[in-house]
Design a protein around this nucleic acid. Structure first.
Lengths: 204, 204, 204, 204
DNA sequence: TATGAATGAGAGTTCATTCAT
DNA sequence: AATGAATGAACTCTCATTCAT
């Protein structure tokens, strides 16, 4: 009796594939953000999702697929509403709102997952392509805000794409320091650094 | 009392512990930079170093110790000579030389290791303290260069520690983009971004 | 994330956990009685039970658990029916029947296991508690027979608990000589020694 | 650095084989009585003896030989002086002195070793012959005391060899209870049981 | 669709023994 | 005589995956 059984939430319920997939991916997401990609096993995911190991491999080609989907889910849930909101705002307000949305306690999980994902991509080609697309999107949306601001005359002119590269790089780098917490960098300090950067580079 | 016996080996070389340890750590370093921390096993390291598994655990308390030493070795080999060189230069030249030393092909392995290390620290307390020390050192040395430059009147005045935080963050973030290569960011472009940052923030 | 894959097995039978556990414990029991606790490995047990090593750790928390269960099984299979039988007899017949049941060829394995168990308890606290309980039960049941006999006037009066201590000690000590076989002590001789003891101490 | 080095008591001292053997056997004896035969490794013995593992196998054919010698040493150190003393006494005093020498705190180690030895002999033919000899000697010496007492008219007549068998068995069995301590049996209680036995069987 | 028992390769580690020094 | 680095088989345990039910 090794206690490896799944919690029999509701014995042998049948669901369409999509429902089961979401259930499993959601469980994986929680585990990855707590323990990292290297720290979760297929069994863990199954148990946490309340299904059997067999169900996992029935619906997925392997753990790798689950992890990829979990990260995709996480990223989509973070960016999709944020970006939708930003599109309703003017450039200045959009930039300001974006900075406020970064480094908040609720986004910590997101950043952990992002770096897990990024690093997995270093050694695992399966992840690289998806990663590239997401990164390009993220950077592109920031560039668009900058361009809009420059067109509207509220941001200093300059190469918007290049400023976006620096903005994203600075954000990532600040997240690394904020997440690790040593030397301590609070979310508010991290946001101040970004505001300072925006003021210098865009006059915002 | 388990009646084990050794079968004649084919060849066998003897070395003092320190020599073997270096050999093994060097082998581990190569594997980690290629496959990541999660991708190397004690057996892999032994095979790559040309020794038996027993030799590994004879000289080390476990794989973890080897990995920690490999990363320490990598970081020391990168920073120690660079920092020694920078100390011989004036602030303006030091900053310029530092930027030139970043994002070069030879340093790619270093950056991979650095991020592996960072990630390991997220979920593994053994790594956190060492990491914190190294991070503080690195950031502190950059701050010192900035302070020296401000004292010499060659850099714009401002909060040196804060500028150092941003400089380090930007460097890490650019390294992430440079390493991934998608969207493409060359080493020279990455350096240009840093130079632009230095010009804006320090008037350098 | 280690990319393991299973290769098609040749045959595979499915059983409920309890069935497999019994099968494995039974296999362990045979091995322990032949080779001793120190001489059996998880692999041995798996092979002997006709299952894979993974099956062993799927159903048990570790070898220790298997060994503990094997010994418990052995002891229960020996004592439970014997004690049930004795309870149906009068004191004089019970004592007589008990002596006849000792040192028979079928009980050799039992005694080997008992001493394995006992000795394991010297260095392994996990075993001590269970051992203590079993020993107390065994001694207590003998004492109860003596008390019943004294109450019925068929045994000489005296401190029943103390006689039980000596009876059990003599039994254990005779078993040690009988099992080892050097100097030779047959089962019948051992039983005669016990009968002689009973006659002296209880007038039985 | 695994801390497996021997304490370099006095670097590379040279001794005749016999001196080194004794040193190693003595170290083994201490370890076995603390941790049991199964719990000591060749390395442990080497470290505890302050010599290198190589020295161990230079002087001995293997760990098994060391263990056998350690037990022989223990038994000799216990019995030789005791038996020498008993030979100087009359039968009644000899028996009385023998009982007093049993189950004392100083003899606990001896009994542990004795049972370790006994168990090892069950599965290991190397031990059986030596064991048999020692057991025969021990039992024979007790028989001789009884015979002497019967000849002198101080002990009841009867089959001395058989009484010796029972005496030794009872002693072993009491030692098992005394060593385990559950249910509690003090040394003095154990000796009382033996005295009671001697009174019943020998009129002593 | 779902289960969960079963698999076996491979993980880190231990250890008696060998052998170059 | 003595060392201690080196060996490699065997240890327990983990785990992604398979497959009979």
């Amino acid at each position: 009796m090794t206690g490896r059984r799944a919690v029999p939430a509701e014995k042998r319920s049948r669901h369409p594939t999509e429902v089961r997939r979401r259930q499993v991916v959601r469980a994986a997401l929680e585990l990855i953000s707590e323990q990292g990609i290297a720290g979760v096993s297929a069994r863990d995911i199954a148990r946490h999702a309340g299904v059997s190991p067999g169900t996992i491999t029935y619906h997925f080609s392997g753990v790798r697929e689950i992890i990829a989907e979990a990260i995709a889910l996480e990223i989509d849930e973070y960016y999709t509403p944020l970006m939708a909101e930003l599109r309703t705002l003017g450039p200045r307000e959009a930039l300001s709102r974006l900075v406020e949305a970064l480094f908040t306690p609720e986004t910590e999980r997101h950043w952990r997952m992002w770096f897990e994902y990024w690093l997995a991509g270093l050694h695992d080609d399966d992840f690289v392509d998806r990663q590239a697309g997401r990164y390009a999107t993220w950077q592109g949306q920031i560039r668009d805000i900058i361009v809009a601001g420059q067109d509207a005359g509220v941001f200093t002119s300059g190469d918007a794409a290049e400023v976006a590269v620096r903005f994203v790089a600075l954000t990532d780098g600040l997240a690394l320091q904020w997440l690790r917490g040593v030397p301590p960098l609070t979310g508010e300090q991290a946001r101040d650094h970004l505001r300072r950067f925006a003021a210098d580079e865009l006059g915002a």
